[in-house]
Amino acid sequence: MRRWLSLIVLNTWAIFILLFCRGDISKFSITTRHVIVISSSCQCLIYPLELHAKPTVAIDLISLPTLIAPSTSSFGLIYQSNSTISIYSFEGRKLSNFQCTSIQSRLLTNQVTSLSSRIFAIIDIEGHKVSSLSCF
């Protein structure tokens, strides 16, 4: 049961605990101003870092995303099952939704993807392979 999330303020070492009643925490991500939490009941909750008692925004999702890609102005939810990426603003508005075949059949981590306000970058394997054939 993963129903609480402890936030440690590094300057003061103060600890805040976020408790969840509607399901377990499936995934979370932290940006400079927000904490994004995906619960197992397919809800995306956005907490501002200044006032983290209540989520300011709750987004109902169709399915659980594989990865959260955060940036300063928006965040992306990556669904590996149907190779789609949904970009949301921190106010809960859906900015875009597009397909990206590069995210199929590979281990997705925050190290292989990165999102900024203007660019979404992902490490990709190029299709061409150079093979050498030697016969004896």
């Binding site: 990426i85 660019i119 979404f120 970058a121 992902i122 394997i125 392979k129 016969c135």
Partner: peptide
Amino acid sequence: MVSFNFFEIKSIQLLEPKTGNKLR
């Protein structure tokens, strides 16, 4: 004897987050 050496070039794909199109 037959041997294959596979050599993969890795790349970083850059997309526009608003449209999902490739950068340019």
